[in-house]
Design a protein around this nucleic acid. Structure first.
Lengths: 183, 183
DNA sequence: ACCTGAACACCGTTCAAGT
DNA sequence: ACCTGAACACCGTTCAAGT
């Protein structure tokens, strides 16, 4: 609340580190992004990163939270559109980060923190999709599997770099017309 | 064809190395499997692996070829069953290797060899699924997107450790009844 | 041709020390 | 509390040398 100079300074430095990590992860991928280079880009010594973050996975989670937060903030605009348009919007939103889906899955067995984040993320998204399906008249017992199928297709398209727009459109159209036929 | 003692010896050693890598990859995952431990399990010095394989990715590809080959050989038995049963059979087949799907995707941008293997694999599988859909009366323009959706769902279930059997069944049933409704 | 011991370059992370 | 230079443990890979 009432934060003094010291607080804002460290908050700012933290954000600079996250920004550097984000740039590096999106540009070169998680694996190819060395802690040393991230630190250099943020203007600190390599080990300083460990003052602000427990390890590299914690940095990843901070970046993911930022990206998801931004997407969620923009989602209000897309929410009124038909389902397949929403799906294509989402794909476009994460086109800049094609490797992150795979990165999260790869870290899953190695990092309990990433595992927990992933669990929460899926639950949140599937709840959201289920609600959307409910609005469109999909019967209750079909909503959960349908939401998972939609999720998997989005992840699949992202981790396979998504194919050309016309292929995406065909998949989105087929999927939504069959999964939520009442529109 | 006509192979002498020397040939069978080196072929055998190669197979021992692949077997060691396979065990290690399946038990601990690709990342956690060090070349040193694989070499030790195969009874050779670490650098000997590089006489038989260009690098760790080449070892991965050898293991993948083995697994896919075995699955394909067994596929004949499953081919006559309905689509959702086939899907569940495939999931069961790769349950022992939940991390490999993610591993391949993670290596995709880092290894041209894995990238090429992945490309060939998807083309082969999607051709196979398309043919299966054609047999069941799915119109031609729907087959490619439907095959991709099915592929993504399988990959998704595998890389998310697949959920309990009842959930799998629900997803398989919903997917196939909507994607290939004529049976 | 086949295999090795020893080294190399690089990585995430830690430690002891400074302010 | 915040930050650093130097080191550590580990990794995939390479090299020079042996048979």
């Amino acid at each position: 609340m009432a934060r003094n100079r010291r607080d804002t300074d460290t908050t700012q430095k933290r954000e600079e580190i996250v920004a550097a990590a984000r740039n590096s992860f999106l540009a070169d991928g998680y694996e190819a992004s060395g802690m040393a280079r991230i630190a250099a880009e943020a203007g600190v010594a390599p080990n300083t990163l460990y003052w602000y973050f427990e390890d590299k996975d914690a940095l990843l989670i901070a970046v993911l939270d930022e990206l998801v937060g931004e997407a969620l903030a923009e989602y209000a605009d897309a929410q009124s559109r038909p389902l397949d348009a929403q799906l294509l919007w989402l794909l476009g939103k994460f086109d800049a980060a094609p490797g992150l889906v795979t990165t999260v899955h790869a870290r899953l067995p190695l990092s309990p923190a990433v595992h927990a984040w992933h669990e929460r993320f899926h639950q949140a998204v599937e709840a959201l999709v289920s609600a959307e399906l409910a609005l469109r008249g999909v019967p209750e017992h079909e909503r959960a599997p349908a939401a998972r199928i939609a999720m998997f297709v989005v992840e699949g398209l992202l981790s396979h770099h998504a194919g050309d727009p016309s292929e995406r459109a065909a998949i989105a159209a087929l999927l939504t017309s069959r999964i939520a036929p009442l529109r």
